[in-house]
Every structure is written in structure tokens, then in C-alpha cells.
């Protein structure tokens, strides 16, 4: 019976543990109002889901999630939080009703749709018996690279990855165009005397004019 789960009984318990942790973190984020706590918990969520990725054999994705989700995006979110606000306003109880109904309805529909999905870990499902298996079989002859993920990423689907790289570059450019390249802070710090330690006044107006 337990064989149909992802692994043995022990693995099933670990699955339940990780998914339970994800649930607790997500519910905490939904309830909290302190933005610092929310940002930190989103990093925790990424870290736990990185562990889940390792559990479902996606070592590369787990690595990426740990580096990007828990490291980079937490740093970026913290930087943005410092520039904006520390706490969120309390939500009105009536406001919660609409989203709750929408999410419940969507969830029920998705679960109804998931009934037709192949069983978890099914090797003969259309998704797993198709091109993915072919990549595994022809990879060693074509590439001579043991890591199939790298060879699919860089070679079989190299065009895809070129697009993704361009998107990352464009996003960096967009952020720099929106916020400036950071030279403003460099100039400010350079001309600032050590006495003036306090932060400059909230720049509501001059940022507006810029």
C-alpha cells in the first residue's frame, strides 16, 4: 500500500512533515501583519520547498530554490521593505469574504480536475513516458554529460534558456531604470560628512520630481 506513495513509509512521513510545515508557514503569512516577519517566513517557505524538491529528485531545482528563493528574493524583499513600510494595515473582516469564496471555489475545481491526473510517481504517465524519457536515453550518446538537466537546459533547449537569460537581463535593466543605478547613494555617502549620520528626510517630493 505504501509503495504507491512516493517512497516507503518513512518517506511518506517525511512528505507529510514537509507539507505540514509548508501549510503552517503559509497560514502564518496569511495571518501576520508585520512585513519583516512575512518576508522572513517567505524565505522559510522557499527553504522548506527546496527540501521538498530534493525529496522528489529535483536536485537542481532544490539548489536553485535554496539559492534564489531563500537567498536572493529575501534580500530583495528586505531591501524594498526598508524603503516602504514595516507593517501592513489590518484587513477589514468583510474584505476577506470575497477572496475566500474565490479561492475555495478554485480549489474545489482544481481538486475535481486532479482526479483524472495519473497517480503520483507513475512511470507510464504521458508526461513521464514522453520526451523526458527520450532525453534520458539519448543524452549520453549526444552530449557525454552525466547531468541530464544541464544538457537539456543548455543544449536541447538552449534557445529557451537564451530567452530566459534575456528576461533576467531585461528585468535588471527595468529595475535600474525605475530606481536609478545606485549612483545616487554613492554620491550622497561620499559628500556626507561623518557628523550627519541621520537618514535624509523621507523623499516623498523630490522622488516625485525626479
Amino acid at each position: 500500500m505504501t509503495e504507491v506513495m512516493i517512497g516507503g513509509t518513512g518517506t511518506a512521513l517525511i512528505n507529510i512533515l514537509f507539507l505540514g510545515m509548508l501549510f503552517v508557514v503559509a497560514l502564518a503569512i496569511a495571518r501576520l501583519r508585520s512585513l519583516f516577519a512575512i518576508v522572513m517566513l517567505s524565505g522559510v517557505y522557499s527553504l522548506v520547498s527546496a527540501a521538498w524538491y530534493i525529496l522528489v529528485d529535483a536536485v537542481d531545482v532544490g539548489f536553485t530554490e535554496a539559492a534564489v528563493g531563500a537567498g536572493m528574493s529575501t534580500a530583495v524583499l528586505l531591501g524594498a521593505m526598508l524603503l516602504t513600510a514595516r507593517t501592513a494595515k489590518p484587513e477589514k473582516p468583510l474584505q476577506r469574504l470575497g477572496p475566500l469564496v474565490v479561492c475555495l471555489a478554485t480549489g474545489v475545481m482544481l481538486i475535481y480536475g486532479s482526479v483524472d491526473l495519473p497517480a503520483l510517481g507513475d512511470a507510464t504517465s504521458p508526461a513521464n513516458a514522453g520526451i523526458g524519457l527520450t532525453y534520458l536515453k539519448i543524452n549520453w550518446y549526444d552530449m557525454g554529460v552525466p547531468n541530464v538537466v544541464t544538457s537539456v537546459l543548455a543544449s536541447y533547449r538552449g534557445f529557451d534558456t537564451l530567452g530566459e537569460t534575456a528576461v533576467v537581463f531585461t528585468a535588471g535593466l527595468a529595475v535600474a531604470l525605475l530606481l536609478g543605478f545606485g549612483e545616487r547613494s554613492l554620491a550622497e555617502t561620499l559628500k556626507k560628512t561623518p557628523k550627519a549620520e541621520t537618514r535624509p528626510a523621507p523623499r516623498g517630493k523630490d522622488g516625485n520630481a525626479a
Binding site: V68, L77, V152
Partner: peptide, 21 residues
């Protein structure tokens, strides 16, 4: 199956880029 791993790997990196925008 390596294919979902490849697709999601790039999606995560693009995700943080769009998040910062």
C-alpha cells in the same frame, strides 16, 4: 523526468527577476 526540472529551474530565476521589477 528531467524536463520539469529544467523548466522550473529557469522559471524560479525569472521569477525572482520579475519579483524585483
Amino acid at each position: 523526468n528531467p524536463l520539469p526540472h529544467v523548466l522550473m529551474l529557469t522559471a524560479i530565476v525569472v521569477g525572482v527577476a520579475t519579483l524585483s521589477v
